[in-house]
């Protein structure tokens, strides 16, 4: 037992063990079982949103309650996890979730994409290609791609059931008519195995092609909206577009100011109040690895 008066969250139990006040990976076994059933159903029907009894988690909605529950249900003691937030390993959200699992599951953590067996991500897919055996867990705010076009849940469910997806193209049409090109830059709708239209969570559309035929398992968890969906390995994922306005990836035109990469997704950083700015890789691990390799 830990001292109840000690409220600091910074303590991590010794390597390889977890805080015995919690069940392994925080959630109780029945809850994990329920989530795993939803995950299996999601994997069996790629792109279909499976309702599940989302639990309250010790963090606010919008911080990844869905992703954390999915991760919790998938974790085994041998796992090595990596958590990223907008590509970075060192931001508040990523650090907090990593610490959460260090304490409640005692699993190893890493910042290296290649070493991780499970990666929980908020709004990016790592630049290093994923491999078989890895699991990528997405945090999803709004799982329903049609939500802002059709507010009725009963109606959107029916539209999915009957494959009535014309409305999705109305959104893209509106983009082109007001901006001259498809201006949707993130949460870009995709068609999965030519059946379900899916919201890939707010990843930049630069990352969309990485989902296609990805060897890793991709799981999506929306805690507040109580939905889970999934892409099994090697699934066809095609971004929606028009014949005369095909899908294009979008990245800032520049090279990373730290590692010099010219093919990664870049963040723009304002350097001072005189308009100086630089581009850096949004994927901090990829950038750091490149700098190390260059130094050797």
């Amino acid at each position: 037992m830990t001292d109840p008066s000690d409220t600091s969250l910074g303590d991590t139990p010794p390597e390889g063990t977890h805080d015995q006040d919690y069940n392994f990976a925080y959630l109780d076994e029945q809850t994990k079982r329920m989530i795993r059933r939803a995950l299996l159903k999601g994997l069996a029907i790629p792109g279909y949103q499976v309702p599940f009894a989302s639990r309250e988690m010790p963090m606010p909605y919008g911080w990844g309650t869905g992703g954390v529950q999915v991760t919790s249900a998938c974790l085994v003691p041998d796992d090595c996890i990596k958590v990223i937030d907008q590509g970075a390993d060192d931001t508040t959200n990523a650090v907090s979730i990593r610490k959460f699992f260090e304490r409640t599951a005692g699993v190893r953590t890493t910042e290296k994409t290649g070493e991780a067996s499970l990666i929980q991500t908020r709004h990016r897919i790592p630049e290093t290609p994923l491999e078989e055996g890895q699991i990528l867990v997405y945090q999803v705010p709004i799982p329903e791609p049609l939500r802002f076009l059709e507010p009725r849940e009963t109606e959107t469910r029916k539209m999915h059931a009957l494959e009535e997806y014309g409305l999705m193209h109305v959104k893209l049409y509106e983009d082109i008519s007001s901006h001259g090109h498809i201006s949707t830059a993130y949460a870009y709708p995709v068609s999965v195995e030519e059946r379900y239209v899916m919201d890939p969570s707010p990843i930049p559309k630069f990352d969309n092609p990485k989902m296609h035929q990805c060897p890793a398992v991709q799981l999506f968890g929306a805690g507040r909206e109580q939905r889970i969906y999934a892409l099994p390995p090697y699934t066809d994922v095609v971004s929606l577009d028009f014949e005369d306005h095909p899908f294009t990836r979008l990245r800032n035109d520049g090279v990373c100011g730290l590692c010099g990469a010219d093919d990664t997704y870049l963040d723009e950083v304002i350097m001072d109040d005189e308009g100086t700015r630089m581009f850096v890789c949004s994927d901090t691990d990829y950038c750091a690895t490149r700098i190390e390799e260059a130094a050797e």
Binding site: G166, L167, V170, Y173, I176, E243, D244, H245
Partner: peptide, 13 residues
């Protein structure tokens, strides 16, 4: 255009 897109039109022009 919505009804056209509903029945499969995919050419913006």
């Amino acid at each position: 255009g919505e009804r056209l897109m509903n029945i499969g039109a995919r050419h913006y022009g």
